[in-house]
């Protein structure tokens, strides 16, 4: 098993970040062209805690390295199953994801937590655990795990940049909305 972890601070409130998070892979993000579709599968609010639980299916363009593709079989898309929990009292968003595609060969478990540092800043903490499952072949297992860790490292930077532009656009859209409401009054 290999682990990848990172922490990033965004200069936006937790409310802004948790709202923009639902649009993370939308048209405002020009660094997420690998995400083709995001579908909501299930959504409910726990009546006692107020926690909002959401299941989503994220469909990506297959981007595994060529050698890995030829080893595991060619496929156009790969899919991720994500369950997120918004706790409005504790002000946390926790997202737990795992790969649906090739799940019998490699297991990628990712946990992301967004929590406020103060009224204007939010921390993003990401932790991914990658385990190749094919029997025996330790060298191949290591190569699969290493190549996925490299992919996480490359995506961390792109992910930050892309989400920054979503946050920026989202803040602007909400400001315009408020202005419209004020003008109408």
């Amino acid at each position: 098993m290999k682990v990848f972890s990172t922490a990033i601070t965004f200069d936006y409130s937790w409310e802004e970040v948790s709202t923009a998070n639902w649009q993370k892979y939308g048209p405002w993000n020009d660094k997420a062209s690998h995400v083709i579709a995001v579908d909501t599968l299930n959504r409910r609010i726990d009546p006692t805690t107020g926690i909002l639980r959401t299941e989503r299916l994220i469909t990506c363009k297959q981007s595994a390295p060529e050698w890995l593709k030829s080893l595991l079989g060619h496929m156009d898309t790969s899919q991720v199953y994500e369950v997120s929990y918004v706790n409005p009292a504790a002000k946390t968003v926790t997202m737990v994801s795992q790969n649906l595609t090739l799940a019998n060969l490699v297991n990628v478990q990712e946990t992301v937590v967004y929590k406020p540092l103060n009224a204007h800043q939010t921390q993003f903490v990401q932790d991914a655990r990658i385990t190749a499952l094919c029997g025996g072949w330790q060298r191949i297992k290591n190569s699969i795990e290493d190549s996925l860790v490299t992919r996480f490292k490359e995506n961390a930077h792109k992910g930050r940049e892309g989400f920054e532009s979503v946050l920026h656009m989202s803040r602007r859209a909400f400001a315009e909305e408020r202005l419209k409401v004020q003008m109408a009054v």
Partner: peptide, 8 residues
């Protein structure tokens, strides 16, 4: 769910 659905 058991971990994340709890009141904290």
């Amino acid at each position: 769910d058991a971990i994340h659905m709890q009141r904290k």
